[in-house]
Amino acid sequence: MTVPAQQIKFYQTGSFAVGNRLLDLEDRSVQADTDRANALTSGHRACQGCGEALGARYALDAAMRATQGQMVAVNATGCLEVFSTPYPQTSWQIPWIHSLFGNAPAVATGVAAALKAKGRTDVRVIGQGGDGGTVDIGFACLSGMFERNDDVLFICYDNEAYMNTGVQRSGATPPAARTMTTQAVGPEPGNAFGQGKNVPLIALAHEIPYVATATVAELHDLEYKVRRAMEFRGARYIHVMVPCPLGWGSAACDTIRVARLAKESGLFPVFEAEDGEVTGVVKIRRQVPVEEYLRLQGRYAHLFGDPPRTDVIARIQAMADRNIRRFGLVE
């Protein structure tokens, strides 16, 4: 079991802050480096406090370091694509292509195939998209890329709904969450229980070389996972939770806090797996009830009305408890 982000037991700030002046340069996070790639640079049109903009830069900067800048990114349609590349400006500072909503994994496969044919396997390929482009419309291409074990790292920035089109339900929308197509009306407001799919586990079932989950709240873990992913050839998948202030109805300044609580409550298990077997989990450091996570988000406001839906909150807590048992998230 590896708990790499915490190998250096640091005192003043632990290894949880972005930087640490007391560490050697190479032990600091990529984001602490003034020479980081800034793969996604300033001037993009993401909302204030956008988790996806943050997650994308975290992941791609880490990949840029891991590949010494020899990298190509393929982007699915979605917020990330729209806010980064409206003509005549792009915020990307890497070779980047956007094709369609549902084909990013296949386009990435094509890029990887071309690079292989040209003998340029030093150049690595990353596919990326939101949860819609990954778990829904892009899922067939993703699964195909996985089963062929194409040399692609696919990163899903999961904000749990179709945000680009104005917050509609996706296969990654959690139960009880309000979206514009699962509205907070009727006897069971919000998204239904018992639906949705867990793509990290589906990826794991493909027995690809590497699968991991991460959040924007734990940079060191996220960077480690990107770095680790780059040590493998073949299909790899990282699923990053990126809160969306607009869609989740959370404060722009709370993006990281919300992601942290998702993990610390057990609702979002953070783990990694190699060849279909879980090899590591990031334990919960300060366990919180799911209520602390839910309360920060307008999409769950209907659970805290008068009277509060303690029954629904209990069901969500049960989901967290199951994750905690299943992945052993508590020491």
């Binding site: 003043q12 700030t13 802050a17 972005v18 930087g19 002046r21 007391l22 984001q31 956008c50 830069r57």
Partner: peptide, 25 residues
């Protein structure tokens, strides 16, 4: 070790968090 346990309450200790967490660089 003990000095490094200091939280540096209210005073920037250059942990790079602000530099890292800004979605807009």
């Amino acid at each position: 070790f003990e000095a490094r346990r200091c939280l540096s309450c209210g005073n920037c200790f250059e942990c790079d968090n602000c530099f890292g967490v800004c979605p807009d660089n």
